[in-house]
Simulated scan of single mutants.
Amino acid sequence: MQVEDLRRLIALAGHERVTDAAAVLRLTQPTLSRLLARVEHELGGRLFERDARGVHLNPNGALALAAARDIVDRYDRLRRDLADVLDPDSGTVRLAFLNSMATSLVPRLLREFRVASPHVRVTLRQAPTHDLLRLLADGTAEHAVLWPRPTGPHGWIPLQRQRLVLAVAPGHRLERRKRVRMAELADDDLVTVPTGFGFRTLVDDLYAADGLVPRVSFESEDLATVEGLAGAGLGVAILPDQQAGTSTVAVPLASAAAQRVVGLTWRSDRDLAPPAARFLDHVRAAGPYG
């Protein structure tokens, strides 16, 4: 049974004559009669009683009519709500991003998009990379700002190349150095994110390239917290340069691998809703963000 069948059932109940209802619905009388017979068969009982004056709802029909009105009303409301959400000029974009992008790249991205599309709403989610990919897969998010570039059916626009730096507390022996080699950190405690995070893998790889294993003192999922702990002298930290310098001193690393490229990704195996497509067009036109 389709929603239009329920609309016709409602019309028939309102007119009580098949001929009149058929005229309003622009159907032939036999077509409407067959539709009624099909609906009654599907629901398992008679809904109307026929007599010389036309058709009249019986108790089963009254129950079906109330349900039909509720279903049609909910369906129409759904269509209106979806139309609002999907309107490219005033709909909604679902954007997810790495926690470390919350105070730097994402605000700049959204500020410029708001200027270009002031009536489009953007809902936000923060998560680590593995959760961002899950949010994209199940449709909770339409776009994600993350690192590294995902494999599989994902589009990709590089947004920002981030240089990784050593973040040390003021007064640390390395704070005035122009460049630091990873080997020089062998005796320092490290504050970093937990194992399993993409950024932790990058940090571990930097140590491993010099034959080192980091001596981790504290772990936090939030890079701002990592920076604060390092600034309190509880260990050094390796951070994107945008995340260092609040309570720490940022010192460049000598390793060429001390960088990451953050980008915007989306599922390329499905169509984007109009507002999300508009957001993508904006990002493409805006180009890299430093």
Rank of each mutant, 00 (worst) to 15 (best):
L166E: 04
R163K: 05
L190W: 02
G196W: 04
G152S: 13
V165W: 01
A208W: 13
A169Y: 02
L174I: 01
G171T: 09
F218N: 03
G152V: 13
R179S: 11
D189Y: 03
E142R: 11
D189M: 04
T140G: 06
L133Y: 11
P148L: 10
V145N: 09
G198D: 12
A169S: 13
L202Y: 00
P214K: 02
R161A: 14
G155M: 08
M182N: 02
W156E: 09
I157E: 05
S217N: 07
L146K: 00
V191Y: 06
R215T: 12
R179Q: 09
P150F: 10
L146W: 00
L202M: 04
A208Y: 07
V213H: 10
L164D: 01
A230D: 04
R181I: 00
A127C: 06
H172R: 05
Y207L: 00
R161L: 14
L136Q: 08
R177T: 11
W156G: 05
L202E: 02
R134T: 15
G152L: 13
R176D: 15
F218S: 02
T140R: 11
E142M: 11
R181S: 07
T151K: 01
V226A: 13
T129E: 14
V213P: 00
D204Y: 05
R177I: 01
D205C: 00
G171N: 10
L124W: 03
P128W: 05
Q162W: 00
T195R: 13
L185P: 05
I157G: 08
P158R: 07
E219N: 03
D138H: 14
A224D: 15
F199T: 03
V168A: 01
A208Q: 13
R163M: 01
E184R: 09
D222Y: 06
A224H: 14
A127R: 13
L190M: 06
T192H: 04
M182F: 05
M182C: 04
T192P: 02
L206Q: 06
H130W: 11
P153H: 06
H143V: 07
G228Y: 01
A141Y: 12
L190P: 02
R179Y: 01
A127T: 04
V216R: 08
I157A: 07
G198E: 15
H172T: 03
Y207M: 01
V203L: 09
V191R: 09
E221W: 09
D187P: 04
G171A: 07
Q162Y: 01
T192I: 04
H130T: 15
D187Y: 07
D204A: 09
R149G: 04
V145K: 11
Q162V: 02
T225N: 05
A232G: 12
D222R: 14
D189G: 13
G152Q: 12
D187T: 15
G198I: 00
F197N: 08
E227C: 04
A144Y: 02
W156A: 07
S217Q: 12
